[in-house]
């Protein structure tokens, strides 16, 4: 017993080092599996508060750009509205009466990162605004990511610029599907894998979200095909996708809740069994 105590006292620095280092390693390994960064995330009052203060100063510098983006979106929506009135001759589908599947919340981005291998954003909406895990996050130009952790007033978003994220997407002009991943290199490009070799892939084609994910609505723009190659086995394409979104410059985002998500998941689970 005496010897054990002596040993501990003699090596106390090394033992403390080992203890702390293993805690860090455990947290690191945990954070590398999807949806596991439970304890160490910036959706808490302290970091949210600091980022909020910085953001409240910072956002004035982007006002002009923000306005331009809004005006552009407005223009596009107006065009859509007028075109649909003209083409369908008074049989406008009134979305306010029909059942709404998607609820949209606007949020400010408090923190954005795009230089590490798993990137997260922090937004200023949380449980108090009924934001939950696995809601989709988009901007007017394209998708941003998926809600990862929430606290009372803040939430973290797992960016599409992350090795962990896999999002179901499809080609706009056909129904061939694939998964969107990121190789960690450039924040401008993401990689689309597992696209069947029968798909008509052409540089410049648009990639949109597929309806399968139950997180994003069908048909949200993501990016255009930059280049493509068949992978080693020759059965599938690996496609470089240039994002429409500038992931390095994101001010305001829309958080999308799919109200039918639970139902879809339940159905899928029951048919899997």
């Amino acid at each position: 017993m005496q010897q054990i105590i002596n040993f501990v006292i003699k090596n106390k620095t090394f033992l403390l080092f080992l203890f702390l280092f293993s805690i860090c390693l455990a947290l690191t390994i945990q954070s590398h599996s999807y949806h596991r960064s439970k304890f160490i995330n910036s959706a808490n009052a302290l970091s949210g508060g600091v980022y909020g203060t910085v953001n409240s100063i910072d956002k004035y510098f982007d006002l002009e750009q923000e306005n331009e983006i809004l005006a552009e979106e407005n223009k596009r929506l107006k065009e859509q509205l007028f075109n649909s009135i003209n083409s369908e001759n008074n049989t406008v589908i009134d979305t306010s009466i029909s059942k709404k599947n998607y609820r949209i919340t606007i949020a400010d981005v408090y923190k954005n990162s795009y230089s590490s291998t798993n990137n997260f954003l922090t937004v200023n909406k949380g449980k108090n605004d009924s934001i939950k895990q696995d809601f989709g996050v988009i901007t007017s130009k394209g998708i941003v990511g998926i809600i990862d952790n929430t606290s009372k007033n803040y939430a973290t978003v797992l960016s599409i610029l992350s090795k962990k994220s896999r999002i179901n997407v499809k080609l706009k002009n056909s129904n061939h599907i694939g998964s969107l991943t990121w190789n960690g290199k450039s924040p401008e490009f993401v990689q689309l894998i597992d696209v069947s070799k029968f798909a008509p892939v052409k540089a410049g084609d648009t990639i949109v979200t597929g309806g399968q994910s139950s997180i994003f609505p069908k048909g949200i723009n993501i990016g255009s095909i930059e280049s493509f190659e068949t992978d080693i086995s020759g059965d599938t394409y690996t496609i470089q996708v240039k994002l429409f979104n500038d992931m390095t410059n994101i001010g305001t985002v829309y958080i999308i809740e799919n109200k039918d998500r639970d139902e879809i998941l339940k159905l899928q689970n029951s048919s899997n069994e």
Binding site: F17, I23, L27, S31, N41, F120, T122, T156
Partner: peptide, 28 residues
Amino acid sequence: LLLTSFLLGMFVDVFMDSGGVHAAASVF
């Protein structure tokens, strides 16, 4: 020193959503 480095790294991790990587590097 070990304990404060651990704390410092942990705080940076919390702010940057990076798991425990900064804490591990600082402790080392």
